[in-house]
Amino acid sequence: MTEYKLVVVGAGGVGKSALTIQLIQNHFVDEYDPTIEDSYRKQVVIDGETCLLDILDTAGQEEYSAMRDQYMRTGEGFLCVFAINNTKSFEDIHHYREQIKRVKDSEDVPMVLVGNKCDLPSRTVDTKQAQDLARSYGIPFIETSAKTRQGVDDAFYTLVREIRKHKEKMSKDGKKKKKKSKTKCVIM
Protein backbone atom coordinates (compact mmCIF):
# COMPACT_ATOMS: atom_id res chain seq x y z
CA MET A 1 0.00 0.00 0.00
CA THR A 2 1.38 3.38 -1.01
CA GLU A 3 1.77 5.99 1.72
CA TYR A 4 1.43 9.69 0.95
CA LYS A 5 2.85 12.38 3.24
CA LEU A 6 0.53 15.37 3.00
CA VAL A 7 1.12 18.66 4.78
CA VAL A 8 -1.63 21.23 5.43
CA VAL A 9 -0.27 24.79 5.54
CA GLY A 10 -1.81 28.24 5.84
CA ALA A 11 -2.32 31.16 8.19
CA GLY A 12 -3.80 30.75 11.67
CA GLY A 13 -7.57 30.36 11.82
CA VAL A 14 -8.20 29.39 8.17
CA GLY A 15 -9.55 25.94 9.10
CA LYS A 16 -6.61 23.61 8.49
CA SER A 17 -7.45 21.44 11.51
CA ALA A 18 -11.19 21.55 10.78
CA LEU A 19 -10.56 20.30 7.21
CA THR A 20 -8.25 17.53 8.41
CA ILE A 21 -10.58 16.37 11.20
CA GLN A 22 -13.54 16.46 8.81
CA LEU A 23 -11.63 14.14 6.44
CA ILE A 24 -10.39 11.79 9.18
CA GLN A 25 -13.31 11.70 11.63
CA ASN A 26 -16.26 13.01 9.60
CA HIS A 27 -17.16 15.76 12.01
CA PHE A 28 -16.81 19.53 12.23
CA VAL A 29 -14.87 21.16 15.04
CA ASP A 30 -16.14 24.70 15.44
CA GLU A 31 -14.12 25.88 18.45
CA TYR A 32 -10.75 27.40 17.58
CA ASP A 33 -7.82 25.80 19.35
CA PRO A 34 -4.53 26.86 17.73
CA THR A 35 -2.51 23.85 16.58
CA ILE A 36 1.18 23.40 17.23
CA GLU A 37 1.43 20.24 15.15
CA ASP A 38 -0.86 17.22 14.81
CA SER A 39 -0.46 14.10 12.72
CA TYR A 40 -3.29 11.94 11.37
CA ARG A 41 -3.41 8.74 9.33
CA LYS A 42 -6.25 7.39 7.24
CA GLN A 43 -6.56 4.55 4.75
CA VAL A 44 -8.58 5.50 1.67
CA VAL A 45 -9.18 4.27 -1.86
CA ILE A 46 -8.36 6.83 -4.56
CA ASP A 47 -8.93 5.86 -8.20
CA GLY A 48 -9.05 2.18 -7.25
CA GLU A 49 -5.76 2.27 -5.32
CA THR A 50 -5.79 1.70 -1.56
CA CYS A 51 -3.43 4.16 0.05
CA LEU A 52 -2.48 5.49 3.44
CA LEU A 53 -2.65 9.23 3.95
CA ASP A 54 -0.20 10.53 6.53
CA ILE A 55 -1.43 14.07 7.15
CA LEU A 56 0.48 16.70 9.08
CA ASP A 57 -1.71 19.53 10.34
CA THR A 58 0.59 22.46 11.01
CA ALA A 59 0.68 25.64 13.08
CA GLY A 60 -0.43 28.77 11.26
CA GLN A 61 0.71 31.10 14.02
CA GLU A 62 3.86 33.03 13.22
CA GLU A 63 5.54 32.06 16.52
CA TYR A 64 5.83 28.48 15.22
CA SER A 65 7.30 29.42 11.85
CA ALA A 66 10.72 27.99 12.80
CA MET A 67 9.18 24.50 12.71
CA ARG A 68 8.05 24.90 9.08
CA ASP A 69 11.30 23.98 7.34
CA GLN A 70 11.36 20.62 9.11
CA TYR A 71 7.87 19.48 8.09
CA MET A 72 8.26 20.94 4.61
CA ARG A 73 11.33 18.74 4.09
CA THR A 74 9.36 15.55 4.83
CA GLY A 75 6.12 16.41 3.00
CA GLU A 76 5.45 15.04 -0.49
CA GLY A 77 2.52 17.35 -1.21
CA PHE A 78 0.99 20.46 0.30
CA LEU A 79 -2.55 21.77 0.76
CA CYS A 80 -2.13 25.56 0.81
CA VAL A 81 -5.21 26.76 2.68
CA PHE A 82 -6.68 30.24 2.96
CA ALA A 83 -10.09 31.39 4.22
CA ILE A 84 -12.35 33.00 1.61
CA ASN A 85 -13.34 35.60 4.23
CA ASN A 86 -9.74 36.57 5.07
CA THR A 87 -7.79 38.44 2.38
CA LYS A 88 -4.56 38.42 4.43
CA SER A 89 -4.62 34.60 4.57
CA PHE A 90 -4.94 34.57 0.76
CA GLU A 91 -1.99 36.96 0.39
CA ASP A 92 0.06 34.76 2.77
CA ILE A 93 -0.21 31.80 0.36
CA HIS A 94 2.60 33.27 -1.75
CA HIS A 95 4.97 33.16 1.24
CA TYR A 96 4.08 29.55 2.08
CA ARG A 97 4.59 28.50 -1.53
CA GLU A 98 7.96 30.26 -1.78
CA GLN A 99 9.12 28.68 1.48
CA ILE A 100 8.06 25.20 0.29
CA LYS A 101 9.92 25.66 -3.01
CA ARG A 102 13.03 26.90 -1.17
CA VAL A 103 13.05 24.05 1.37
CA LYS A 104 12.34 21.40 -1.29
CA ASP A 105 14.86 23.10 -3.62
CA SER A 106 12.42 22.66 -6.50
CA GLU A 107 10.04 24.71 -8.62
CA ASP A 108 7.89 21.62 -9.12
CA VAL A 109 6.30 20.55 -5.82
CA PRO A 110 2.81 18.96 -5.70
CA MET A 111 0.38 21.52 -4.23
CA VAL A 112 -3.32 22.30 -4.19
CA LEU A 113 -4.70 25.76 -3.42
CA VAL A 114 -7.68 25.47 -1.06
CA GLY A 115 -10.20 28.24 -0.36
CA ASN A 116 -11.90 27.17 2.86
CA LYS A 117 -15.07 28.44 4.58
CA CYS A 118 -17.02 28.71 1.30
CA ASP A 119 -20.23 28.23 3.34
CA LEU A 120 -19.81 31.75 4.78
CA PRO A 121 -21.61 34.68 3.11
CA SER A 122 -18.88 37.20 4.02
CA ARG A 123 -16.49 36.46 1.14
CA THR A 124 -13.55 38.86 0.64
CA VAL A 125 -11.54 36.68 -1.77
CA ASP A 126 -13.25 36.25 -5.12
CA THR A 127 -13.28 32.75 -6.65
CA LYS A 128 -11.77 34.16 -9.85
CA GLN A 129 -8.86 35.70 -7.90
CA ALA A 130 -8.06 32.30 -6.40
CA GLN A 131 -8.46 30.51 -9.75
CA ASP A 132 -6.11 33.02 -11.37
CA LEU A 133 -3.51 32.54 -8.64
CA ALA A 134 -3.71 28.74 -8.91
CA ARG A 135 -3.42 28.96 -12.70
CA SER A 136 -0.33 31.18 -12.41
CA TYR A 137 1.21 28.57 -10.06
CA GLY A 138 0.13 25.69 -12.32
CA ILE A 139 -1.76 23.97 -9.49
CA PRO A 140 -5.41 22.96 -8.91
CA PHE A 141 -7.79 25.16 -6.89
CA ILE A 142 -10.64 23.76 -4.80
CA GLU A 143 -13.15 25.57 -2.62
CA THR A 144 -14.07 23.76 0.57
CA SER A 145 -16.21 24.02 3.65
CA ALA A 146 -15.03 22.02 6.64
CA LYS A 147 -18.46 22.75 8.15
CA THR A 148 -20.60 21.27 5.35
CA ARG A 149 -17.84 18.89 4.11
CA GLN A 150 -18.07 20.39 0.60
CA GLY A 151 -14.88 19.71 -1.35
CA VAL A 152 -13.01 18.16 1.60
CA ASP A 153 -12.37 14.73 0.06
CA ASP A 154 -11.76 16.37 -3.31
CA ALA A 155 -9.00 18.62 -1.90
CA PHE A 156 -7.03 15.80 -0.28
CA TYR A 157 -7.62 13.32 -3.12
CA THR A 158 -6.60 15.89 -5.74
CA LEU A 159 -3.35 16.39 -3.84
CA VAL A 160 -2.69 12.63 -3.92
CA ARG A 161 -3.28 12.68 -7.68
CA GLU A 162 -0.83 15.58 -8.02
CA ILE A 163 1.79 13.60 -6.07
CA ARG A 164 1.21 10.57 -8.32
CA LYS A 165 1.65 12.72 -11.45
CA HIS A 166 4.82 14.20 -9.99
CA LYS A 167 6.28 10.77 -9.14
CA GLU A 168 5.42 9.49 -12.61
CA LYS A 169 7.09 12.49 -14.22
CA MET A 170 10.18 12.10 -12.03
CA SER A 171 10.53 8.41 -12.86
CA LYS A 172 10.20 9.16 -16.60
CA ASP A 173 12.85 11.86 -16.28
CA GLY A 174 15.04 9.41 -14.37
CA LYS A 175 14.68 6.77 -17.11
CA LYS A 176 15.61 9.32 -19.78
CA LYS A 177 18.75 10.24 -17.85
CA LYS A 178 19.67 6.58 -17.37
CA LYS A 179 19.25 5.89 -21.10
CA LYS A 180 21.51 8.81 -21.94
CA SER A 181 24.19 7.67 -19.52
CA LYS A 182 24.40 4.23 -21.18
CA THR A 183 25.98 5.73 -24.30
CA LYS A 184 29.62 4.72 -24.36
CA CYS A 185 32.59 6.34 -25.93
CA VAL A 186 35.21 4.09 -27.53
CA ILE A 187 38.68 5.48 -28.12
CA MET A 188 40.86 3.55 -30.60
Rank of each mutant, 00 (worst) to 15 (best):
T2R: 14
T2Q: 13
T2V: 09
E3T: 09
E3C: 07
E3M: 08
E3R: 06
E3L: 08
E3V: 07
E3I: 06
E3P: 12
Y4W: 07
Y4M: 11
Y4L: 12
Y4V: 13
K5C: 03
K5M: 03
K5T: 05
K5E: 07
L6I: 14
L6R: 01
L6E: 01
V7N: 11
V7F: 07
V7W: 12
V7K: 06
V8G: 02
V8R: 00
V9P: 02
V9F: 12
G10R: 00
G10Q: 01
G10K: 00
G10M: 00
G10S: 04
A11W: 06
A11H: 07
A11G: 08
A11P: 09
A11L: 15
G12M: 10
G12R: 07
G12N: 09
G12H: 08
G13H: 11
G13T: 10
G13C: 11
V14G: 12
V14A: 12
V14Q: 13
V14T: 13
G15N: 00
G15E: 00
G15I: 00
G15A: 00
G15C: 00
G15W: 00
K16E: 03
K16Q: 02
K16D: 00
K16Y: 00
S17Q: 00
S17H: 00
S17P: 00
S17N: 00
S17A: 00
S17D: 00
A18P: 03
A18Y: 02
A18V: 06
A18T: 08
L19I: 13
L19Y: 06
L19Q: 15
L19H: 13
T20C: 07
T20G: 08
T20P: 03
T20L: 08
T20K: 01
T20I: 09
T20N: 10
T20A: 11
T20M: 05
I21M: 11
I21F: 08
I21V: 14
I21S: 09
I21G: 10
Q22F: 05
Q22D: 15
Q22Y: 04
L23I: 09
L23V: 10
L23E: 15
L23A: 15
L23T: 15
I24L: 15
I24N: 15
I24M: 15
I24K: 15
I24S: 14
Q25R: 10
Q25S: 15
Q25M: 11
N26S: 14
N26Q: 13
N26M: 07
N26P: 10
N26H: 10
H27A: 15
H27N: 14
H27W: 14
H27S: 14
F28H: 05
F28T: 03
F28D: 02
V29C: 13
V29I: 13
D30H: 10
D30V: 09
D30R: 12
D30E: 12
D30P: 12
D30Y: 08
D30C: 11
E31W: 05
E31V: 08
E31N: 08
Y32V: 06
Y32P: 05
Y32H: 10
Y32D: 04
Y32T: 05
Y32W: 11
D33W: 04
D33T: 06
D33V: 05
D33L: 04
D33S: 06
D33M: 05
P34Y: 04
P34G: 03
P34D: 02
P34R: 05
P34L: 04
P34F: 05
P34N: 03
T35D: 02
T35H: 00
T35M: 01
T35C: 00
T35E: 01
I36L: 09
I36K: 02
I36F: 10
I36R: 03
I36S: 03
I36V: 11
I36M: 06
E37I: 04
E37R: 01
E37H: 05
E37W: 03
E37P: 01
D38H: 01
D38T: 01
D38K: 01
D38E: 02
S39A: 07
S39Y: 04
S39E: 06
S39T: 15
Y40A: 01
Y40S: 01
Y40M: 02
Y40L: 02
Y40N: 00
R41M: 08
R41Y: 05
R41A: 08
R41I: 07
R41W: 04
R41N: 07
R41D: 03
R41F: 05
R41P: 02
K42R: 11
Q43D: 12
Q43F: 05
Q43L: 07
Q43W: 04
Q43C: 09
Q43A: 11
V44C: 12
V44H: 12
V44A: 12
V44I: 15
V44E: 14
V44S: 12
V45N: 13
V45A: 12
V45M: 14
V45P: 11
I46R: 10
I46E: 12
I46M: 11
I46Q: 09
D47A: 08
D47E: 09
D47V: 04
D47G: 11
D47H: 10
G48V: 06
G48S: 09
E49H: 09
E49P: 08
E49T: 11
E49G: 08
E49N: 12
E49A: 09
E49S: 11
E49C: 07
E49Q: 14
T50Y: 07
T50W: 06
T50S: 12
T50K: 14
T50V: 11
C51A: 09
C51K: 08
C51E: 11
L52A: 14
L52C: 15
L52G: 15
L52Q: 14
L52R: 10
L52P: 14
L53T: 10
L53E: 06
L53V: 13
L53N: 08
L53Y: 07
L53M: 10
D54N: 07
D54M: 03
D54I: 02
D54V: 03
I55K: 01
L56P: 01
L56F: 08
L56D: 15
L56C: 14
L56T: 14
D57C: 01
D57P: 01
D57K: 00
T58M: 07
T58L: 09
T58H: 03
T58D: 04
T58Y: 04
T58E: 04
T58S: 11
T58N: 04
A59H: 04
A59E: 07
A59M: 06
A59G: 13
G60V: 03
G60H: 06
G60L: 02
G60Q: 03
Q61W: 06
Q61G: 14
Q61L: 10
Q61R: 08
Q61N: 13
Q61D: 14
Q61A: 13
Q61H: 12
E62Y: 08
E62N: 10
E62A: 09
E63V: 04
E63P: 12
E63N: 11
E63W: 04
Y64S: 15
Y64V: 13
Y64T: 15
Y64P: 14
Y64N: 15
Y64K: 14
Y64R: 13
Y64C: 14
Y64D: 15
